[in-house]
Design a protein around this nucleic acid. Structure first.
Length: 567
RNA sequence: CGGGGUGUGGCUCAGCUUGGUAGAGCGCUCGGUUCGGGACCGAGAGGUCGGCGGUUCAAAUCCGCCCACCCCGACCA
């Protein structure tokens, strides 16, 4: 490809509002343009990256027996009603009516279509297992698109679906995907690890997410260096607090609580600073309203945050009480709420057990010191969000926290979809049974963006070789110089003959512009035809690391191949 | 959905507080000089100031409503 004929609109300035490095660089390098919030156009070079990622994924899916097909984006509402997701998914699902007034949806994933297909075409155990996949646009009306390609409303996903006769077979399909995913991420140069996840809207049993460490990530995981436990904090179980961790004391615990004047001190930080104690010595009291059981008081140690999912599993749907409701229930404004003397049921986090704390006095401008958790908490549960530094729930070792980008996920769906949608088969005994399913996703733009997040420097992107828009960026310093131009043309032809993807910057521009563009775009190997063209010498530079050396033109193809192998 | 912010040539932004003939840098076009790290000189083109309504002799500027986009939170795989 000749740069003179390629739409590669690089820009000097960061796009307005961009925060994530990958967002800035992908726009600046001329790979993408934003059409609407969370909706992007892929320009030629950007699309080349996507197609290379797609090719890697396709190869690895075929290698484990995947059969590629294509499912429609436009779905009739019926199948989504059958699976139940028409009801359970909220505004994230794009819905519309066709001209006849029939409800339709834009698919955000394809369990429904796959199960519909399976229900029609799979009848016998002899047809199992099946492994189906497709690579297609997905539509999700994200509440808050952000960070360039990291969180969008329209994106391309490889999703595969396994159909098996039983759970043992599902586990085999699952394991095949694990192996394939490890290879896919490795080949794409993305550092990602598999962690336990919360199945969320996909439903079903075991699931894992592939998480790529990055500051730009929106998720957080904890991992144990000692035993390898790794989980999304959405799911992570809190390990037991070390003995005595809760036992900090302010004021005597024996003789009971004692009032302290704390005028206007409403937040944990305010109170701690005012009293000269640590947040962990405080008890945080939240009033929540459960749909089923009404108002409740939830108590946590002052330095801990509530994990809403954990509370939801215990009390069902709930919301934080409004200030008016707090006053109605506790007789005091938020900020001075406490468990002593409350009429509400009190749920306490395990980290409070056995400790003595300072908490709200249920009286404006007063707190109580010396509250014994065991005397006020009705039930203890694991309610806190796990964070780095906590003990591992498996082995007690310290957990490290890490921000990550979710680049893929795998779910053991079981019969969650096959049962309601009637996808069954006859087993060896002629007994009709539900197909056991799994679903497996990988987001292509997330791989692209993550690769940029993980591989860049102050000059631009440093693409992993397998997914770079071009393998080689060939540029002539002076296109107007006949000997330089002639040698560059010759090398362009030679490299292309070797089957290499070459971007040839033949533009008659000042050298600086071309160097800057090449670094921004980030192809793994750069070849510079310059001053020494007459001697048939060129410069070879590896983008990552920046090492450069002179190479004889006749040895270039071999040198490029070697450099690519090392990238 | 709650809170905050922004919308001015293609891009990044200034101008708005205190109303009075719309600016800069980059990019683009033409001419010339340059030519190994986003060159220089000269000459140009290009904007109903997000939209609608209001106040005013006069609105980019003040007021109201709407729209879009960004950030924080909620939500989410």
């Amino acid at each position: 490809m000749r740069a003179s004929q390629l739409l590669l609109p690089t820009v000097k300035e960061d796009p307005a509002g961009a925060e994530a490095v990958s967002h800035k660089l992908m726009v600046r390098a001329g790979l993408i343009r934003q059409l609407a919030a969370g909706v992007y156009v892929f320009l030629p070079a950007g699309w080349r990256v996507m197609r290379k990622i797609e090719a890697v994924i396709r190869e690895e899916m075929e290698a484990i027996g995947g059969q590629e097909m294509l499912y429609p984006v436009v779905n009739p509402a019926e199948i989504w009603q059958q699976s139940g997701r028409w009801q359970t998914i909220g505004e994230e699902l794009f819905r519309f009516k066709d001209r006849k007034g029939a409800d339709m949806v834009l698919a955000m994933t394809h369990e429904e279509v796959v199960t519909w297909l399976a229900a029609r075409e799979i009848h016998s155990y002899k047809q199992l297992p099946q492994l189906w996949f497709h690579i297609q646009t997905k539509e999700r009306d994200e509440a808050r698109p952000k960070s360039g390609l990291l969180r969008v409303r329209e994106f391309i996903m490889k999703d595969s679906y396994s159909l098996d006769a039983d759970f043992a077979a599902l586990q085999r399909s699952y394991d095949k995907h694990i192996a394939a995913y490890d290879r896919i991420f490795a080949r794409c140069g993305v550092n990602a690890r598999r962690v336990l996840s919360d199945p969320g809207m996909m439903g079903g049993g075991i699931s894992h997410e592939y998480m790529a460490p990055s500051e730009a990530g929106e998720d957080e995981i904890v991992l144990c260096q000692k035993c390898g436990y790794a989980a999304n904090v959405d799911l992570a179980v809190a390990g037991p607090e070390p003995a005595g961790a809760a036992a900090a004391v302010t004021g005597g615990g024996q003789e009971g609580p004692r009032e302290i004047h704390t005028p206007g001190m409403r937040t944990i930080d305010d109170v701690a600073a005012f009293l000269g104690i640590e947040p962990r010595e405080l008890m945080k009291s939240l009033v929540v309203v459960s749909q089923e059981s009404g108002p409740l008081l939830v108590a946590l140690r002052g330095d801990r945050d509530l994990h809403e999912g954990k509370l939801r599993r215990i009390v069902g749907e709930f919301r934080l009480a409004t200030p008016d409701e707090v006053v109605a229930a506790q007789g005091v404004q938020p900020g001075f709420v406490g468990p002593v003397g409350t009429s509400l049921p009190v749920l306490g986090d395990e980290a409070l057990r056995g400790g003595v704390f300072t908490g709200g006095a249920n009286r404006a401008d007063y707190h109580l010191a010396g509250i014994s958790a065991d005397q006020v908490v009705g039930e203890y549960h694991d309610l806190r969000l796990v964070r780095g530094g906590d003990p591992c729930p498996e082995c007690g070792g310290p957990l490290a926290g890490e921000r990550v980008i979710e680049v893929g996920n795998i779910f053991q769906l079981g019969t969650k979809y096959s049962r309601p949608m009637g996808a069954t088969f006859s087993d060896e005994q002629g007994v009709e049974r539900d197909i056991v399913m799994g679903s497996y996703g990988i987001g292509l733009e997330r791989i692209a963006a993550t690769a940029v997040e993980q591989h860049h420097d102050e000059h631009g992107i440093c693409w992993p070789a397998a997914i770079a828009p071009f393998q080689v960026h060939l540029l002539v310093v002076r296109a107007a110089d006949p000997s330089q131009a002639a040698l560059a043309e010759e090398l362009y032809a030679t490299l292309a003959e070797r089957g290499l993807d070459v971007l040839f910057d033949d533009r008659d521009l000042s050298a600086g512009v071309k160097f800057k563009d090449a670094d921004l775009l980030g192809c793994p190997v750069q070849v510079v035809v310059g001053k020494r063209a007459a001697e048939r010498m060129v410069e070879l530079k590896r983008r990552a690391g920046g090492d450069r050396r002179d190479v004889a033109a006749d040895d270039l193809a071999a040198a490029v191949a070697a450099a690519l192998g090392a990238s």
